[in-house]
Design a protein around this nucleic acid. Structure first.
Lengths: 316, 316
DNA sequence: TTGAAAGCGCTAACAC
DNA sequence: GTGTTAGCGCTTTCAA
């Protein structure tokens, strides 16, 4: 395809003039501008963005590191990021990791090799010390709070939210409470859930926690295991509404009434929770994602918290 | 940051030798290779991908045009694409359109400006004649069947699926059937639904169709309107399980029994449908997405159909 | 207001 | 095996 030189030649001007027209610089005579535009039109010319990005050292592209893409929570975050990217003419690259630390680092290299201006980490597999070096090459934004001053954060106060849920359950008289988590204690959110539990109820018996919960099916399995424990939990706090839905479904299938025999509360306010009337802790992840994009775009290292919202329905 | 020239200088070799090492060419002496690798390591050097992409004219990046990202059907397609992209070391760019034709064209320009090797269109706002010109610059894959030989297709036979649903409902004795759609008759899928209906039941009364349905809430509203029609439909075919869930919820809220008073069937086999035990027509969109990626990667123009799956539950 | 020319950082054809 | 060099297509001083 034609390049800028050919356009210049055909329009009888220099390449710099064509470049000026392309970038809407002033100080181009109306006459030459028209001539250039005409040739561009005729030749059906579009500048090569790789060349532009190469010389500018900036790409208007932002990456989003996401462990799982078939997961409602991460999809909400991504959705928020995309909302703002469209408004600001940025392109978004999705970087799935399945929590593989090497894959994650591989993605971070896109900062170093100039493919991306910034990366938003919705959830990470690596310790911060492995991630920090990359802040030298571009903006790194986290959707989890961290003290590190090089990292901008758009986050929700998970611990406070967990605390409120456990306090509520305690107030309602529950004493045997189980919960599900996505990952094990390598995950901050799991540790915070346990900490919040222990703050309210004291020492936690690990048998009442089921990890590796992501989907409806995982919820069914979790329900089966957790409800088999003696003494049986009277309430289960799920790490997502789909998981909560699976627990609900399993509990009903073995004849338990919700909330009389089992109270259930989920997270993220998903359709399945609306459908089954399950209470939920809405972390407002779309907003968190939007905020994360804004921080990434202006390369801010600010720490911005988004408040959570408790939505009570008939399941507790 | 250091560039290839500096690495060459420091290693006491030429840039081509460094390039050869970088690209794992043979014909590099073990001695020089080691020297180069050592300097690369010391200097913490990473090649600039913009320069590489520029000269190669290929980027190992594929775009996915997606109207809505908070929509389960499109997320499934995207999920499939991402599955395969990870395995094949491609980067995926998400291109949201909200069915804005101009935005869509803007995204397609990423083919022309060399940012993307291929684009997968999950659903489009433009007529094919506006899209076809871009096939000159890269591979364009559609998730909807089209005759155009320049367009590769990974699709499901929507019409056959719709037909089967309506035939099933007819066999079950339903005569007043309503359905929901995402868009109006500008959409192929809407037109196919209507055509399938008319094939089975004859002339369709448009009042029994509700468009603009994407979410659970949309389903609630659709339920309210459609169930207010006289004569009341005895079955509703929703264009997604979340919409179906909303209809279910509304129907129950006004005292209707499912399936005695109202049969409901959804699409895409989503968690909310599992939770509410709603029958569904699973188009296997994850598979369709995976297939679309494969076609895009090898620049194939093949037409590949993925079979649908009917999942019967208690809602009909 | 315009153009020449020096890069941006890399690959690959060609010569040795 | 290795180095020289001519680009890839663009932006941006600098001088005119």
């Amino acid at each position: 395809m034609a390049n800028i030189h050919e356009i210049a030649r055909l329009a009888g001007v220099s390449v710099s003039t064509v470049s000026r027209v392309l970038n809407h610089h002033k100080y181009v005579s109306e006459e030459k501008r028209t001539a250039v535009l005409k040739v561009i039109e005729e030749m059906n010319y579009t500048p090569n963005r790789n060349a532009v990005d190469l010389i500018r050292g900036e790409t208007k592209k932002i990456g989003v590191i996401i462990p799982y893409t078939n997961n409602q929570a991460f999809d909400q975050l991504l959705h928020g990021v995309l909302n703002r990217s469209v408004e600001n003419d940025y392109a978004i690259m999705v970087l799935p990791t399945k929590y593989n630390p090497d894959k994650e680092i591989e993605h971070l290299f896109m900062l170093k090799n100039k493919l991306l201006d910034a990366i938003i980490i919705t959830s990470r597999a690596n310790p911060w010390e492995n991630i920090l070096p990359f802040t030298e090459y571009g903006s790194v934004i986290s959707c989890e709070y961290t003290e590190h001053p090089e990292i901008g954060c758009s986050y929700m106060d998970r611990y406070a939210a967990y605390l409120e849920v456990f306090q509520l359950l305690k107030k309602m008289g529950h004493r045997n409470i189980a919960f599900t988590t996505a990952r094990g204690t390598e995950s901050v959110s799991t540790r915070q859930t346990i900490a919040a539990y222990e703050k309210v109820f004291g020492q936690f018996d690990p048998v009442y926690r089921q990890s590796d919960c992501f989907s409806f099916e995982d919820g069914m399995a979790a329900g089966q295991r957790l409800l088999g424990i003696n003494p049986r939990p009277t309430a289960i706090y799920a790490n997502g509404d789909e998981v909560a839905g699976g627990i609900y479904k399993y509990a009903r299938s073995v004849g338990l009434s919700i909330p009389e025999d089992l109270a259930i509360i989920g997270q993220e306010n998903q359709p399945v929770g609306v459908g089954l009337d399950i209470s939920t802790l809405d972390h407002q992840l779309v907003k968190v994602g939007e905020q994360a994009f804004d921080l990434a775009m202006i390369k801010s290292k600010a720490k911005v918290e988004t408040p959570y919202k408790m939505i009570l329905r008939s399941s507790i």
